[in-house]
Design a protein around this nucleic acid. Structure first.
Lengths: 120, 120
DNA sequence: CTGCATCCTCTCGGATACTG
DNA sequence: CAGTATCCGAGAGGATGCAG
């Protein structure tokens, strides 16, 4: 049996309604930069500078802001190594990896179909 | 073999870079209201008024605007029945259904974990 | 019933400069 | 290297009113 939206709402009454936590998570995870940061980290640990380059076009401000949100949601873990110069690593948590397992098939489909969709 | 972000980018060079069509599709499909409208339609055809009620909290302006975007992307089909009063139906296209097949597992995970994430 | 037009607000997000 | 602080514009998005 494949999952249906009706089934999800039956299992979670009130899901995706206005004030539901799902809306908050949706906003964080499906945000413009959130998706791309999570995707970049899905290939492994990255440092700040590497992330800045991996996520094409992101500003330092949005990188900092989005990383704070994702870290607060325990989807991304931040590890700081006291050293000069500073060294900070970001990686997915187990929860973040679970999320990306479900996100990547979607991204693959988008990569496969984006050209045709925007050509329309 | 499970899909990886690196593999997606290997198959589609330049994917998810700044000016890539994937960015546009991402913005449409993962937009605040786009997800919810597509989800509501994944259970079947709905009329304007039903959609307005199904997507809790949406304004008429954003419903119209988002529907136009999704229709232009051929993810949603609009069918108008000449009658008084007007009768208009919206449903997923085949392309839209393909998309939602990959989106729903993600939404299910979010529904399962949202409470714990926002509690953090 | 199904929208479009207008106005207004507020947040996202870019640019730039600065710090430990 | 890894951020923070500040300013500012553009666009998302809400409320209201009106049209076919």
């Amino acid at each position: 049996m494949s999952v249906s939206y009706a089934q999800i709402q039956a299992d979670h009454p009130g899901s995706f309604s206005h004030a539901c936590p799902t809306r908050t998570v949706l906003d964080h995870v499906m945000s413009r930069w959130g998706v791309l940061i999570l995707s970049a980290l899905s290939d492994g640990t990255l440092r700040w500078g590497q992330l800045c380059r991996a996520v094409d076009g992101i500003s330092e401000k949005m990188l900092a802001s989005t990383l704070r949100t994702l870290t607060a949601d325990s989807l991304v873990a931040r590890e700081s190594f006291p050293a000069v110069p500073p060294h900070v690593e970001y990686r997915l948590t187990d929860r973040g990896r679970e999320l990306m397992e479900r996100m990547l098939p979607l991204l693959e489909w988008i990569a496969d179909n984006a050209e045709e969709i925007t050509a329309g």
